[in-house]
Nucleic acid binder design. Structure first.
Lengths: 244, 244
DNA sequence: GAGTGGTCTAGACCACACC
DNA sequence: GTGTGGTCTAGACCACTCC
């Protein structure tokens, strides 16, 4: 590790360390849920002080990419654990309580990406994609209807039975079965009226106002890997958001 | 500053410094937009090392309470500046562009808090509150209808003309006129159908689906100071949210 | 040049988990 | 006890801003 201090394009050392650590994550050197080497080991490997490694890890922890546990080590974040598993689920009961969702897959089929889907997933037009439709039930009531698009190349062999038999969230499946960890997402929300088929699936009259959420989810390096539209019944639930 | 290391209730020094700095902010020792003393000065004042002050300020900066500017100093964050002024406005054009909103106050009157409003604002039932209704126009079109509740004691003398004559956002007015800085907020979003009067104000047919957003906004120390419901037309705009 | 925040280091010691 | 992350310190030097 060479310091680039006082060069024209100044990059702090700890940012370079961040990049190196991220590269190891992308390369799969450490898998979700596993411990990465201790700060001292990484400091030796990269030939920097512990404090510099520390700052790099601090930032990755702030981005929910790593998780620090005092006395135990630093771990690759995962959607599998209790605490983080519904990190991306914003729909809660109106009183604010998070409910364990029940997942029902309606279908899972292969299609060709139209230009819009291809653009957003950064694929070539006509590339094979998986289109997955599912219903999420909260407190026994169908609340969220999801349509999900994924690259069929990246998620080879994804099927209805595979999802149904998997114990955990979809993002947990992505990372355990395909090594793709979702680290952030962007959502655009609008209000729409339920059309007849959507109303039927959500057990609502056609015309009922729904939240229509368009999500793009990204893995390491801001690579988009999942497209999703969610239609949400807000009769007994709401989208909860913290602004800081 | 005494170290509480090795006491049964362990609190890191930098957290104590954070609290002291926050107290000075609440007390109005430094006003929004002003510089606070340098790290070295604060270190001397609190009898700790610069590094400890640094960590405290780092966290306050991460919470958007302070703003660091290399070579210039550390400043109290404000809603007045270009960069931060629409920090809490999530409605954007569908393509993602933030539009400068145009503010039209419909009324501003004194009422008594019912038990619900009083609870949420942590006031006594029947306390005087200001109810403010306004319309926000984005790209010339009425998009957001806000009803806003504030303690009339805290925001004494708030009036329609005062708001109309003020050059800046509402949160900027709160902090420059009343010394109350909003630091975070919580929003709950549902989809509803426009009723007739709302439809008229937003220039829509009754029954059109709208976003219905309930916001509670907090100042230092998690004290709720503003209640707000927004009805949003999502014909050409959407609520944009980053999940991390 | 002086003053500010930003980076990096080295070392001491504390808190926590596991054995 | 050993090893891990967490805190605190002191000091050197860099980058940026303003004079």
């Amino acid at each position: 590790m060479t310091k680039s201090h006082s060069t024209p394009t100044f990059r702090p050392l700890y940012e370079q360390i961040k990049i190196l650590i991220t590269q190891s994550l992308v390369a799969g050197e450490w898998h979700p849920g596993e411990a990465i080497p201790s700060e001292l080991e990484l400091a030796n490997r990269f030939k920097v002080s512990q404090g510099t490694v520390r700052k790099a890890i601090d930032e990755l922890a702030a981005e929910n990419i790593l998780i620090r546990r005092q006395g135990k080590g630093t771990f690759v974040a995962t959607h599998t654990e209790e605490h983080t598993q519904y990190h991306f689920l914003r729909m809660v009961e109106i009183n604010g309580k998070k409910e364990e969702p029940l997942n029902e897959v309606l279908f899972c089929k292969r299609i060709k990406a139209d230009s819009d889907i291809a653009d957003r997933l950064e694929l070539k037009r006509g590339s094979p994609v998986v289109l997955l439709r599912r219903l999420l039930k909260l407190s026994g009531e169908p609340v969220i209807l999801d349509d999900i698009w994924l690259s069929a190349t990246l998620f080879k062999g994804l099927s209805e039975t595979m999802i149904s038999e998997f114990d955990g969230t979809l993002y947990s499946l992505y990372e355990t079965r395909y090594g793709t960890r979702i680290i952030r997402a962007e959502e655009r929300i609008q209000a729409i009226a339920a059309d007849a088929p959507t109303g039927e699936l959500l057990n609502l009259a056609a015309g009922t106002p729904l939240l229509d959420i368009h999500r793009i989810a990204y893995t390491y390096g801001d690579k988009p890997v999942e497209l999703r539209t969610s239609k949400c019944n807000t009769r007994h639930h709401c989208y909860l958001n913290e602004l800081g």
